[in-house]
Nucleic acid binder design. Structure first.
Length: 227
DNA sequence: ACCCAGGTGGCCC
DNA sequence: GGGCCACATGGG
């Protein structure tokens, strides 16, 4: 099973909305990307709703909102003190360096933007790439825990390092923004449904050709919890 | 009563 | 350059 086959198989099992990442503004996507770190999306929605109600879901307002107010608004999304700090810093950065203009921010080479994002506290590779792909419409594939699991269990590749895995996807898929967005969305939807058992469940669309026996033994022997 | 979520940073060795 | 751990809420 190669990457495109995985993609097509998933397409047959999940319905992805044309605009999978819900948003009214580009900045909302970036905020969501940060808030959703190790957090269920439902909780992020509550936080976003609060930010909208408070009228502070924009770069200028967020950069000026006091810490306590921000913390309370995003509390449902978990790790709220940490995230409040990250959001505050990041929006101040965008406001002072780019006058809060995301068109200016994104109107550059993706690699340059990525390096810059990675220097911001609270923004790691996955969050940076989510922002680049979904907010900036850059041709950058997002790797998350589900993606790694699928690659390991289907033995698609031996690569495990984030950047290597990303290159593997980007080298083996056609350069298509829609494809990148949809594929990641499909993987997330699969993950939501099958949790850590991808593709170990009987009804998982990817269970075919998974070397289940080998994986199960490794799990039992405790060789890796990430499998 | 667990287990998990659309991770990241900091510390230790 | 890895291996742990804290971070925190809400749903299954």
């Amino acid at each position: 099973m190669d990457l495109l086959a995985v993609y097509e198989r998933l397409l047959g099992h999940f319905k992805i909305k044309d605009c999978w990442w819900p948003h009214e503004t580009t900045f909302e996507i970036m905020v969501g990307a940060l808030l959703t770190q190790n957090t269920a999306w439902g909780n992020v929605e509550k936080a976003i709703k609060n930010l909208k109600t408070e009228g502070i879901l924009n770069i200028k307002s967020l950069s000026k909102t006091n810490r306590k107010k921000l913390e309370e608004a995003i509390r449902p999304s978990g790790f709220y003190k940490q995230k409040a700090g990250y959001l505050s810093e990041f929006s101040r950065y965008l406001y002072t360096k780019y006058e809060g203009d995301l068109n200016v921010f994104f109107n550059r080479n993706a690699c340059i933007i990525r390096q810059e994002l990675l220097l911001c506290r609270g923004i790691g590779k996955e969050t940076a790439d989510s922002m680049l792909l979904y907010a900036g419409n850059k041709l950058v594939f997002v790797i998350d825990a589900y993606t790694k699991r699928i690659c390991i269990r289907l033995e698609l590749t031996d690569l495990l390092d984030y950047d290597e895995l990303q290159s593997f996807f980007q080298d083996n898929l056609r350069k298509d923004l829609f494809l990148y967005k949809q594929f990641h969305a499909l993987i997330v939807e699969l993950g939501k449904k099958f949790c850590k058992r991808i593709p170990l469940c009987e009804d998982c669309p990817l269970k075919i050709k998974c070397k289940q026996q080998g994986i199960r033994e490794k799990l039992k022997k405790g060789e890796s919890r990430e499998l």
